[in-house]
Amino acid sequence: MTVFAAGAVCWRIVDGKVNVLVIHRSAHRDVSLPKGKVDPGETLPETAVREISEETGLRVTLGVPLGMTNYTMPNGREKVVHYWAAEATDQAVLASTFLPNGEVAALEWLPIKKALAALTYERDAEIVERFRMLVDEGVTRTFAIIALRHAKATPPYQFSGPDAARPLTERGRNEAKSIVQSLRAFGPEKIFSSTAKRCLQTVEPVSKALKLSVRETDLISQDAWESGESGVREIIGKRIRKRVTAVVCSHGPVLPDIVREVALATGTVPAATVSRAGDLPVAGFSVLHLSVDRPGSGIIAIETHAPIA
């Protein structure tokens, strides 16, 4: 059975240069990137954030996905590790409670070239090389537009009131709770939602968990979309100008327009991955990563997540 794990290239600016974090592991006597195995019921983004906190004492949010490595462990099982870039803010570094322990003997911040030389495994070096590409392109600092589809709602044929008043089912309410930690991993600072009840109920758990108010708008509602009065361009344009990570919760038919507007507003070259990003299951979401310093340089990466069944 394949073992899944997740981690990150944690980075910060030291004396004007990008440094990345490597860990010296006690038991393995090696130098690697922080990572760890997925716990039962956990998503990969959730694992990455938790493992970084446990191994380094750093509380981070995830940036651009850096791909994965896979290799065979000594016991013969295959291990697949997913990685993200993750900026360690000055506040996070100061708040770290790390102490040497039986698993990690030391943490070391190194310039990228020195980190590549220090890492024990070529597979880790390949992940850092992918991160270096972001640095070379000047798109290291990122924010995201998170396009979220509402969770499972009561079907229209089982509901007699206005469509916008249809509530979530019990399954939908559970889905809304299940995606909270995955969304939290990307550090949203704003939450926007269609005024439809099913959307508002979907973002309620993450709103409470992050202590963020929900900004309701008819401009991304299904009713507005169907009547030709949608204001997706206005909403998305403002979010990109603000350059902070935001959740935008809407409906199946509207989400492709939301993704398309992000692509248009950032000069993204049309690609199949962009069009697919708006085709989401209920309670699924796509994270569209954009550059803080060069938002007009296009969508840097797209990743899509669904609730755990």
Rank of each mutant, 00 (worst) to 15 (best):
R123F: 13
R12K: 15
Q201D: 15
A165Q: 12
I300Q: 06
K37V: 05
Q181A: 11
P65T: 04
V22M: 02
Q91C: 01
E137W: 04
R59G: 05
M1D: 15
A106K: 14
A301F: 01
R59T: 06
L183H: 05
A309L: 12
T97D: 15
P162L: 07
G76N: 04
V81P: 00
C10L: 15
K114G: 15
G187K: 08
A5F: 00
A144T: 04
K114A: 14
V206Q: 03
G102N: 12
V31Y: 09
K152S: 15
G161K: 08
I236T: 07
S227I: 01
K242Y: 13
S182R: 01
L33P: 15
V18I: 11
A147E: 08
P270H: 05
T195P: 01
K37G: 03
N19T: 00
V232Q: 05
S213M: 12
K208V: 10
I145P: 03
G172E: 05
V135K: 02
V64N: 08
R276T: 03
S250Y: 06
L107D: 10
A309V: 09
D223S: 11
S227H: 10
V248M: 11
G16C: 04
P205M: 07
K152T: 15
V14C: 13
P253C: 12
D30C: 05
T245V: 04
T154C: 10
V80S: 02
A196P: 03
V292F: 04
L219A: 14
R243I: 04
G172C: 09
A209N: 09
C249G: 10
W225E: 02
I299Q: 01
R130N: 07
A95Q: 13
L107I: 06
A246D: 07
I179A: 14
L210T: 01
H150R: 02
V14I: 14
G41L: 03
G278W: 06
D124L: 02
C199M: 05
R130K: 14
D90M: 12
H150L: 08
V64D: 02
I308N: 14
E46H: 10
E54H: 06
S297D: 10
V38M: 03
M73P: 00
I145Y: 04
T97K: 14
V214L: 07
E216C: 08
E175L: 05
